[in-house]
Write a protein that binds this DNA or RNA. Structure first.
Lengths: 226, 226
DNA sequence: CGCTGCGTTGAGCTTCTTCAACGATCGTGG
DNA sequence: CCACGATCGTTGAAGAAGCTCAACGCAGCG
């Protein structure tokens, strides 16, 4: 049961049967309620996690309580890997967005495994690099784009992933989307309204149809304003 | 000459004599003028670099020309490592801030080395993790802190590094600092003035004395406003 | 059935940017 | 070595973008 789940995790692709067995020995299987905390920023970092089912958010909080979501992770995605290789505490908070199942891997046991398995370490390097790239885009968006541009970029990203090009279904609440885009629900709501009025999109609840891909692209690149 | 430089690079600590020789074979030694470009965002990523002397900035540009500096790198620090493990193009621009010397390592040759050397791969994992943590702080700052808070956090960071606790010397121009903090020179200048007037700091050019560490800490954490 | 969280809208305000002007400084070529 | 241009840094006035606060409808869930 556990081994089967391990084999589905892309981070663990290319491992030998023995290594799966090793992983199986050190893994801790956890069930989470919706809204349950996994760790808080500053907690001692004992290891990292992989989402088996459900969804998890990684986020920071300001003193006033404003939230910035760094990631929303789904099936097969690892999180808190940073804790394994650098630093002794988690640099952000983690919470289950829905009923979820996650695997925990203790730091030291995992480091031993990775030292013996070049393929595992290459996978981990690729994972970390990917995250760095994502953060690069997030920093760019926060610093160089206004909220309409960030939203447009996000919608286009979704449409590229979904393949059903012009129709997109938000997989997070609008409040969470606001937090992911570095803004607040009120602002997001207003901008969605404006995008509707100006025929960039047509949104009904979580279902959004992209009416003007070129226009959205211009918004995302700062070539046009709302 | 080259081998000696390689031995000083912390990313390469713990390697055998043979591996240094290998690295020496694949390294490309480059001299850069102040202001010289190293690569542009979107360029084909052939490998990564290490700064031997001088300083290099990694940055993004908006369509309107506003710049966000992601990193400023000095002696011994690697950059563009992401290019090696994920993606085919550089995700940002790189330019020498001063006369600099850098080493270039081609992607494929380096990947071969890393596959054979667990110590090298652990070093690389640690490096990437550190960068991720730095980016986490940057995202937090951009999204959750106002400019005075970002500046206070930056000054405190410098003072912690320098050990000469309360006296800090900016190692970048104020224009660059503004870009690093996600703002513009005018705003930074105004805030420095206010911090002076309110006795948080005393600044003369690039030399800044931190007069009220607790106050700066409060600013950095959003407990107090300027 | 009531409660809680989500989403929307309006009014007012804060923060930051833009645009403009100007002095200081730095580096370079004459 | 000086003079010049370019960059850097500062300050003011005006404007834009986004946030806060408040109110309210709505849906989902216990």
């Amino acid at each position: 049961m556990i081994i089967e789940e391990l084999e589905k995790i892309s981070l663990f692709q290319g491992l030998t049967r023995e290594h799966y067995a090793e992983l199986g020995k050190i893994v801790v299987d956890r069930q989470l309620q919706r809204g349950q905390f996994i760790f808080y920023e500053g907690d001692d970092a004992a290891g990292f996690y992989v989402v088996i089912s459900g969804r998890v958010k990684i986020y920071k909080l300001s003193f006033e309580g404003k939230e910035q979501i760094l990631h929303i992770l789904g099936q097969g995605e690892p999180f808190a890997e940073v804790a394994v290789f650098s630093g002794t505490v988690y640099p952000a908070n983690a919470m289950a967005l829905e009923k979820s199942r996650i695997f925990f891997f203790a730091k030291d046991a995992f480091v031993r495994l990775i030292g013996q398995n070049p393929s595992l370490s290459m996978n981990m390097l690729a994972t970390l690099s990917l995250r760095l790239k994502q953060f690069t885009h997030m920093i760019e968006a926060l610093s160089l784009k206004e909220v309409p541009g960030r939203l447009a970029a996000y919608l286009l990203l979704l449409s590229r992933q979904n393949e059903s090009n012009k129709s997109v279904k938000l997989n997070v609440t609008k409040t969470q989307l606001a937090s992911l885009l570095g803004t607040i629900p009120e602002t997001l709501s207003r901008i969605l309204t404006r995008m509707n009025k100006q025929q960039f999109i047509e949104s009904r609840g979580a279902a959004i149809t992209l009416l003007d891909l070129d226009g959205l692209n211009d918004l995302a690149n700062g070539l046009r304003k709302l």
